[in-house]
Amino acid sequence: MENESSPHTDWPYYIKKTWIKWGILVFLVVAVLLFKAIVSIILLTLAGALLSIYFYGFAGLLQKRLHLPATFSLIVSVVINLGLLCAFFWFAGSRLQSQITTLSDTLPSTLQHAKVQMQQSPIGSKILDYIDHSGNEGKTSAFIRHFFSSSFGILSDLYLIVLITMFFVASPVMYKRGIVHLLPENAKDKGDELLDQLGDVLKKWIKGQIIGFFFIAVFTGLGLWALGLPLVFTLALIAGFLNFVPNFGPIIAVIPALLLALMQGPATAFLVFGMYTLVQIIQSAVTQPLIQQKMISMPPVLTVVAQVAMGALTGFWGVLLATPVVAIGMKLTQELYVKKQAYHKYPVD
């Protein structure tokens, strides 16, 4: 009987266990939040690195074509691109703004019109009834808002990206040297070579996205103009920019065009959907192999999984930058694991 502990003597032990459990829970919550913030910052840094690689790639093109000095080519590259951006907004900004305003004002009525047309068919009415009674509409809209939200707010994100780009453009060698210095002595040479290879992979990805943007925007605009749809300029730019988001981007880009086409009838909507599909098929069959013939071949399933995971974790930037993240991961895996395994299996004499 003397060995049995009383409730009074067990009480401090119970309090201690409770505090330990709550401490572990708080630690896990803080760790998850810190991990999410760190991943968001890494993605913004990657966006800044991609922009700086673009400026240096454009400078290299100028240096090759015009035989200009490297520093002067970089200055000209930045000035030309900023000038083109300012000229675009100067000449097309007001038209783009008015079309975006018209599109945002028109979409609610076109969506209602689409619901009315769906109610006229048995399948469409069943789909609408299922959405209304299941409550999936609110869940889907909330998921989409989170999926395409930004990390710290769009203005803060853009400010950080511009700031990081300026630092990378000003002195990229310093940051590269700093990363290499963090590596062990026997890995410095391999790390320096690997950073150059990653830069080449990202440069080719940027080149492919730019070519795809112009291809999609131009041919989509021509197709919409031929079909007589309004807001051609805005819809073409939306299709071009969303081409940066593979798999999901083309699906999202066709939605506003389909809603506007439904105002003119189901036949027009069918033609618009066929035109968007044809442009994507041509882009995938003709231009994409030429763009990615020297890039890492990325499995589509891996890209989709990365987009969903990173989108759920960090929002818009995760969806947008999932493809270069996958490219970087595959390149690192290939160089640091696959080639080493092949070397140990089949050593070179």
Rank of each mutant, 00 (worst) to 15 (best):
M1P: 11
N3Q: 11
S6A: 14
S6C: 15
P7R: 09
Y13V: 15
Y14E: 14
I15P: 04
T18E: 12
G23L: 02
V29N: 04
V30L: 06
V30Q: 11
A31C: 04
A31D: 09
A31S: 06
A31K: 08
F35K: 12
K36M: 14
A37D: 10
S40D: 03
L46N: 02
A47C: 11
F55A: 06
Q63G: 15
S73G: 09
S77K: 07
L82R: 00
C86I: 15
C86P: 15
A87K: 14
F89G: 02
F89P: 01
W90Q: 11
Q97L: 01
Q99P: 04
T102A: 13
L103D: 10
D105A: 07
D105L: 08
S109M: 07
T110I: 15
L111V: 15
Q119Y: 07
Q120S: 07
P122D: 04
K126M: 05
K126C: 09
Y130H: 12
I131P: 15
D132R: 06
H133W: 03
G135I: 13
F147M: 04
S149K: 12
S149C: 02
F168N: 13
P172M: 11
Y175K: 10
Y175F: 05
I179Y: 07
E185C: 03
K188F: 10
E193S: 00
L194H: 06
D200T: 02
V201T: 00
L202C: 05
I206P: 03
K207V: 14
I210N: 05
A226V: 13
G228L: 02
L229M: 13
F233P: 12
L237M: 12
L237W: 13
I238V: 14
L242G: 06
F244L: 15
V245N: 08
N247D: 13
G249A: 11
G249H: 07
P250F: 04
I251T: 10
I251A: 11
I252V: 13
A253Y: 00
I255C: 08
P256C: 07
P256L: 03
L258S: 05
L259E: 12
A261S: 03
Q264I: 02
T268R: 12
T268K: 12
S284Q: 04
A285M: 01
V286H: 00
L290M: 03
M295W: 00
P299F: 01
V304Q: 08
A306T: 13
V308S: 01
G311Y: 09
G311S: 02
L313T: 05
T314L: 02
F316I: 04
W317H: 14
G318R: 01
L320S: 10
A322I: 08
A322H: 05
V325K: 01
M330L: 14
M330C: 08
K331H: 04
Q341L: 13
A342W: 11
H344C: 11
V348S: 09
